[in-house]
Design a protein around this nucleic acid. Sequence first.
DNA 1: GTGGGACGTTGAAATGTTTCAGTTCCGGTG
DNA 2: CACCGGAACTGAAACATTTCAACGTCCCAC
Lengths: 344, 344
Amino acid sequence: MTRNGRAPSVKDVAAAAGVSLGTVSNVLNRPAVVSASTRERVERAMAELGFVRNESARQLRAGTSRALAYVMLDGGNPFFHDVAEGIETAAEDADLSLFVCNSSGRGDREAKHLDRLVQQRVQGILITPVDPDAQHLTEIGQRGIPFVMVDRLSRAADHCSVSVDDVLGGRIAVEHLIDRGHQRVAFVGGPSSIGQVRERLQGAREVWAEFGLPEEDLINLPTEALSVSEGRSAGERLAGLPSRRRPTAAFCANDLLALGLLQHAVTAGLRVPDDLAIVGFDDIDFAAAAAVPLTSVRQPRQELGRTAARLVLDEATNPDHVHEQASFVPALVARASTGLIRRP
Amino acid sequence: MTRNGRAPSVKDVAAAAGVSLGTVSNVLNRPAVVSASTRERVERAMAELGFVRNESARQLRAGTSRALAYVMLDGGNPFFHDVAEGIETAAEDADLSLFVCNSSGRGDREAKHLDRLVQQRVQGILITPVDPDAQHLTEIGQRGIPFVMVDRLSRAADHCSVSVDDVLGGRIAVEHLIDRGHQRVAFVGGPSSIGQVRERLQGAREVWAEFGLPEEDLINLPTEALSVSEGRSAGERLAGLPSRRRPTAAFCANDLLALGLLQHAVTAGLRVPDDLAIVGFDDIDFAAAAAVPLTSVRQPRQELGRTAARLVLDEATNPDHVHEQASFVPALVARASTGLIRRP
DNA sequence: GTGGGACGTTGAAATGTTTCAGTTCCGGTG
DNA sequence: CACCGGAACTGAAACATTTCAACGTCCCAC
């Protein structure tokens, strides 16, 4: 039981059980072809020696590892954690390991992670990229490694993607605010290099125009990141606007911004939703858990992950695989921050 | 450049560059011993073929992988994400990969993860265990795999651990409340099977007794988990207490509970901190971001992770390694939820 | 009694990398 | 001119697993 030197190998097990090493392998991989008595003997030997398969050797032989990888954009955002959880359940069903990496929004870290993953010969890569057009991404594709973009619709048809219709998301958020009677609304979000930000804003603008509202009353408050602290600072800028220009509601490009904005509003003595209504995006758990529960545009986070995993596995195993751009429909979850519960 | 079949190996590179395969290996591992001209030739061949080292083969030869693993207790709690980030920086410095796994508080998932990690021959395992005395943990130790318990002080001296003095944490939280004049305080937390919960409560009780306050005025509100929703339901129970028994402050065993409690209080129309002061534990980013910023007991989250990684690496590489129980000192971060900012 | 199929087991080959003892070559020293 | 030492490179072995053609044994059917 105790380790005397090296970990025991199939060879050691074979010797201990008095069989050839091919038989031990059969016990592991095709137990049916081995007679019951030999199988039992081998299994006892494995237990006694504390044998554990060496995954590297398996991989070397097989040519590919038994793992998937997800490179996420921002580990600090619970949204991505939930996506990862969806991926993990799918990976587990396929009996695969999952590497979870975090690029923290930095392209260099992303590249480094990808490099390592290629070296590991992972079966497939799921990624929410910093920049969907980056050089190192196209290289992955050229290498023939199955990969799927998560939460990012891509024009290029040489890979799968899983995303949510962000334009629609922007539309339903702002339509909800218009429904509640708001005539001056802020859009809080940035940087505009992020595709989601652009599309959510686009949706907001579309519906704004369709209702015939004046363009200048949809006020753009750009931020430098999708973070709580940027939300707070957007709140300050919002408070600094002259009162006739000041919006009565804000649509934030994600929930972290919304939480920051909410915090600033409460600190500044504004009543939410009476003085300022707020809509977020993603519907992370903390949105529902806020002091004033946040109205948010819900994305099917786990489903997103599960689908992405399904696609990458199909690409990895099915020779007739065709690339697919899966798109989900977002849904509004109305809560107190836009007046579900009105307080006198 | 394009894949014709298999990924190119050192052998292919050697053939393309017209050298032996040992030389290619030298270019990769000991560039100094290769003449400049050959090195350049080999490097060009590698670039042309798109050669990428096969990590499995390296591992097989080396006997161990170039990776660490962290098995975390609850991926939904940002606290653990921050710990993981600390570990990752350390791993990166040592040029190792990091597997991040999530047991979601379930022993069976934890065991499954550990199984896979042993098969992968990871260099070391960091873990915040569901149950520190579980069978599968002691087996890891017996296998001789370096491992470190994170955020868990263990009596057993056969491995390292990194933790925060939770008793002290409980003390400073409650002392802070006593300082602010509170004479009736609730402790919100559970289940008591979790070591941290027990110790934080113990610290609270100690300091309560030292100030000569009556035992029955430190009210225990047990919860079934350390989650936002349990915090909310604790809030309901708290509101249900007869007013002469109702505490004026609550010390929550972690920030998720505190956020839930805060939400309930705000919804119920209680003013925080005037009607109810709240102290959390962990000081996750969302604590500072709450509508009423939470006072919390800060743990050095990243430092915890970095130290754990340092210890496991020492155990893996230093033959004279001695097990170490690193303990950190928590600190109170006072914010509005206990009256840093008083509103008239 | 022989042919042949089924079943169980074997042994060798193959996977890609690293390491290390050897080999070759060349310039300098005695 | 023989010898030596070092620099540069080579080739084979080793790592642990899986696969597969081949082999032996037994039994049944003809």
